[in-house]
């Protein structure tokens, strides 16, 4: 337990180390989520467009 606390404390620099890792994680995960959602949305759009074409 004590070990975990000293790890989380980061030698007194917790206030800077953890936000750096947190913000980076959020940015990277955000990039993936955004890219995947964007791709899905366009795939759907393309499919509806193709379906409309076939219907004509």
């Amino acid at each position: 337990m004590n070990k975990l606390l000293t790890f989380l404390d980061m030698g007194g620099y917790a206030l800077w180390v953890w936000p750096a890792y947190g913000i980076t994680a959020v940015a990277l995960i955000g990039m993936v989520i955004f890219a995947r959602r964007d791709l899905k949305a366009r795939e759907r759009e393309f499919e509806t467009l193709r379906a409309a074409r076939r219907g004509e």
Binding site: V32, A35, R36, L39, R42, E43, F46, L49, R50
Partner: peptide
Amino acid sequence: AVLVLRLRAELLSAKIRNAR
């Protein structure tokens, strides 16, 4: 890896534009 995802999306939107 993310670049490939983004490229797929970009190509699709070009296709959508052409189809339109």
